[in-house]
């Protein structure tokens, strides 16, 4: 009886610790119930071909980036959050001039896109025009969205929404030992 009484008194603390354990392990296991399941993570880059925004004769295919670490960024001039992440991409490009950053100008008019880049700078190695079909292949949910691919042509990281310093530091920089 005395033992039982002690146990009951300790119960709240035991429950608290137990709960803390469960929640910490859940939190650190890096799941996110809010994000839709990504069908592409650790999969190959989907097939695509695109035309350069500035020069219609230049083209880019899947095979061109398959063997290089590449950052793929979907953007548009009508997307305000894209404007927010733009300086970070420029920073990245300045720090790692060898990094290939492919921009897909998603469902945008050519004129607006060029104006957007003139105003905000151009961090991209290559800007392809995307009429919407490439975004569909990549499973883009909304703009902006960023993908990272490795040397084997696999998608190793995907970020929905504008990039921030922390995401770049924890998820992008580690892959950039160029």
């Amino acid at each position: 009886m005395a033992f039982l009484k002690k146990f009951v008194l300790f119960l709240p603390i035991i429950i608290t610790i137990f709960l803390f354990g469960i929640l910490v392990s859940y939190l650190l296991s890096d799941r996110d119930a809010n994000k839709p399941p990504s069908a592409l993570l650790n999969k190959n880059i989907p097939n695509f071909s695109t035309v350069n925004l500035f020069d219609e004769n230049k083209k880019l295919f899947k095979k061109d980036i398959e063997d290089k670490v590449t950052l793929i960024n979907f953007f548009a001039s009508w997307c305000i959050p894209c404007k927010q992440e733009h300086p970070l991409l420029e920073d990245l490009q300045k720090k790692f001039p060898n990094l290939i950053i492919v921009g897909f100008n998603h469902k945008d008019s050519k004129k607006d896109a060029i104006k957007f880049l003139e105003e905000n700078g151009n961090p991209y190695t290559f800007i392809g025009i995307d009429d919407g079909s490439i975004g569909l292949e990549f499973g883009v949910f909304g703009l902006p969205e960023t993908f990272m691919t490795d040397k084997n042509g696999k998608i190793i990281f995907k970020h929905i929404g504008p990039l921030d310093k922390k995401t770049i530091k924890t998820n992008i920089l580690p892959y950039l030992n160029l």
Partner: peptide, 13 residues
């Protein structure tokens, strides 16, 4: 339908 405040659904543009 899920919507993140931080980005714009593209078909609305």
């Amino acid at each position: 339908a899920k919507h993140d405040e931080n980005y714009i659904p593209k078909s609305i543009k």
